[in-house]
């Protein structure tokens, strides 16, 4: 296997991509910390980290608003992209994203119920959304399970349950149309007002999820050969599928519970990554994580600064910029 990697003609390209990707991530972090609706001079900026009696307002802006928000965005982008990459491989379906295993519908309904019916308990929105997401994913998995989780059955069960839950969301929207305003940002996916509590909420899942996915990459490669061949190669197919799906569910649920429904990253980033580095999951997985983080960080910087001091939900901006870029890559790939 090791020999295979060394002689792979794609390796040079991957090295360059890794170099550029990491460079972009650092650039993104630097730009996003430096840019915002409040202009910060370089000396003020450095003073935040050095002087003890730094300008309190600037300190608060950088350390408690901007930095945690950027880091949360990075983690969320990484988790969603990883989740999408895993699901596309496990389900062998290019249209798979965390929404397909009910994450969006489950989290969306749970969060909406709290926001609309129990607005005074807004502190429980993240855990409720998390439980809703994981709960929906598990229900779909067990509905689809019949001596084995057949991928087509999983996808169809996912579509059906999502539609079922979406009906409840529509009902809430119609019956409480006067209260919907309070939920729109969450539904569009926003990093507005996110801080350290959200960061620490996502971090453990990101760590476990990243290493789990990197470790699981080789199993994804084997699963890609088809269930029968994978079984022939000695893989416990059902166990591998279940654990990988669960991992994807946890990754996406943690992200969604912190920032709301953020569609684009989970579906498109793995595809963009695949077009650049190929479909070997050992590379696809870590690069998806990297590009997911880069995308959300850049998109959120734009969301914060384009119409400053007003903001756009990052989810909207991401689809706005990302989808044309994806189409560009796609048409170039076809040539």
């Amino acid at each position: 296997m090791k020999h295979g990697i060394q002689t792979d003609p794609e390796n040079g390209k991957r090295l360059v991509t890794a170099f550029f990707g990491t460079g972009l991530l650092f650039c993104g972090l630097l730009i996003s910390v430096a840019k915002g609706s409040v202009g910060v001079s370089l000396s003020d900026f450095l003073a935040v980290f050095t002087a003890a009696d730094a300008n309190q307002g600037i300190y608060q802006v950088i350390m408690n608003i901007r930095l945690p928000r950027i880091l949360t965005g990075g983690l969320v982008g990484m988790n969603m992209a990883l989740s999408g990459a895993i699901l596309q491989s496990v389900l062998k379906n290019p249209l798979a994203d965390p929404g397909i295993i009910g994450i969006s519908a489950g989290a969306g309904l749970a969060a909406m119920v709290v926001m609309i019916l129990f607005p005074a308990m807004s502190a429980i929105i993240p855990p409720a959304a998390f439980l809703g997401a994981v709960g929906a994913a598990l229900i779909i998995y067990f509905i689809a399970y019949n001596g084995g989780a057949h991928t087509l059955r999983l996808v169809l069960a996912g579509v059906a349950l999502s539609a079922f839950l979406a009906a409840f969301m529509s009902a809430l929207t119609v019956l409480f149309s006067d209260r919907v305003q309070g939920t729109v940002n969450w539904m569009a996916g926003t990093l507005h007002g996110k801080s350290w509590n959200h960061f620490y909420m996502v971090l453990p899942y990101s760590i476990v999820g990243f290493f789990g996915a990197v470790f699981g990459a080789k199993y994804l490669n084997i699963l890609a050969l088809g269930d029968d061949i994978a079984r022939g190669l000695g893989l416990q197919v059902e166990k591998a599928k279940f654990l990988l799906t669960l991992l994807a569910a946890l990754l996406a649920a943690s992200a969604v519970s912190a920032v709301g429904l953020m569609g684009f990253v989970g579906l498109i980033i793995p595809h963009i990554t695949r077009l650049i580095v190929g479909s070997d999951n050992r590379f696809l997985i870590p690069f998806s994580a990297l590009f997911g983080a880069v995308t959300v960080i850049f998109a959120d910087t734009a969301a914060r600064t384009l119409f400053s001091p007003y903001e756009l939900p990052v989810g909207i901006l991401m689809a706005f910029i990302g989808a044309p870029f994806f189409l560009y890559l796609l048409t170039r790939g076809i040539k």
Binding site: S37, V38, G57, Q60, I65, S308, P309, Y310, E311
Partner: peptide
Amino acid sequence: GMYSGFVPVSLEYVTMAD
């Protein structure tokens, strides 16, 4: 125009406007 009524305003701006 595009921004009227209720909009997400940057928390950074809010912090500085105190």
